[in-house]
Design a protein around this nucleic acid. Structure first.
Length: 304
DNA sequence: AACTACTCCTGGAGGC
DNA sequence: TGCCTCCAGGAGTAGT
């Protein structure tokens, strides 16, 4: 399972509830390449300082300490696990290694120790995750420089905002636009497929061809997908396959050959924009190429 | 503007 | 059983 918004949100909640207000007593940096900005000794600045707040925008997570801010992206296979005698503990992100595996794992990149007796582990089997260390007063600018679209769980993500942002991408196809974090922040490959299935829209529709009610379905599909996924801390997908399904979610992603929960037709896997894409060919009919051409021609004619 | 290709990586899956 | 090869995929960057 690739960590997307729901998984990162689960990590944010765990950190907020169990670590905020605690003091850092130490750390172990197992893999220095995790750090993207300052050299490894920058972490020394965390020692003895308190975790003040934790935030999230899309798939980016940040922890603000008195001395320093850290910005984290779990990328494909990052996970965050907290354990200790003074907290319940939590685990979020990619479920390999298993959330109950002994830590540190050989792919653990960083351990942060909090007072009293809590350890937060960042583990990532493919070593793509990154952590930036930056002065607290540079966090806002750094986030702004990412040019992220509205976070899916924020009040900024309204239908009107969504429609306006899609308007600027009229010529692009739906799936790549959903994956573009500068359009909306938080959707990855799994939840793009789930949202499109909810909306009963094919991933290769051209944005500008969609009618108002289809845009509305897409917006509602994203909202419904987040509503289902966030409380679960995300889908459980390992190497593209759904492992013991939690209820029926996810409905199509990783379920090639299985029946569509809506109509029973087999879910198929295709490539869209180079990404493995799961869909139901009955519920999500392919855009008709001839109709597409005639509509575009009609628009071009009118605009001249 | 919007595509493609490439770059990071490695565990697991599939082939034989 | 044991090699070998291939593949996934977020996001930044470069090239077309």
């Amino acid at each position: 399972m690739v960590p997307e918004l729901p998984e990162v949100e689960a990590a944010r909640c765990g950190i907020a509830e169990q670590l905020t207000g605690r003091r850092v007593t130490g750390f172990e940096l197992y893999r220095p390449r995790l750090l993207q900005a300052l050299p490894g000794r920058g972490l020394e600045l965390l020692r003895g300082t308190y975790l003040i707040e934790v935030g999230r925008w899309g798939k980016y997570l940040w922890l603000v300490f008195e001395s320093l801010a850290t910005l984290v992206h779990l990328k494909l296979t990052g996970q965050l696990v907290a354990r200790g005698s003074t907290v319940p503990g939590f685990a979020a992100g990619h479920p390999v290694p298993p959330f109950d595996a002994p830590l540190p794992h050989k792919s653990t990149a960083l351990r942060l120790d909090f007072e009293p007796d809590v350890a937060l582990y960042l583990t990532d089997v493919r070593h793509f995750a990154r952590l930036w260390l930056l002065p607290v007063d540079e966090l806002a600018n750094t986030l702004a420089s990412l040019r992220l679209g509205p976070d899916l769980l924020s009040t900024e993500f309204t239908f009107e905002t969504f429609r306006q942002r899609l308007e600027r991408r009229r010529s692009r196809r739906l799936k790549p636009v959903l994956l573009d974090q500068t359009v909306v922040a938080g959707i990855g490959n799994i939840y793009a497929d789930e949202s499109l299935w909810q909306a009963q829209l094919h991933p290769e529709h051209v944005v500008g061809e969609l009618a108002e009610d289809e845009l509305r379905r897409l917006y509602d599909g994203i909202q419904e997908t987040m509503r289902l996924a966030v409380p679960l801390g995300g889908a459980r997908i390992v190497h593209g396959k759904a492992v013991p399904p939690i209820g029926q979610f996810p409905f199509v992603h990783g379920r090639a050959g299985q029946p569509c929960p809506r109509c029973g037709a087999p879910v198929v896997k295709v490539q869209v924009d180079g990404r493995g894409t799961y869909l139901c060919q009955l519920c999500q009919p392919s855009p008709d190429a001839a109709l597409r051409r005639s509509r575009l021609a009609a628009r071009a004619g009118r605009s001249e």
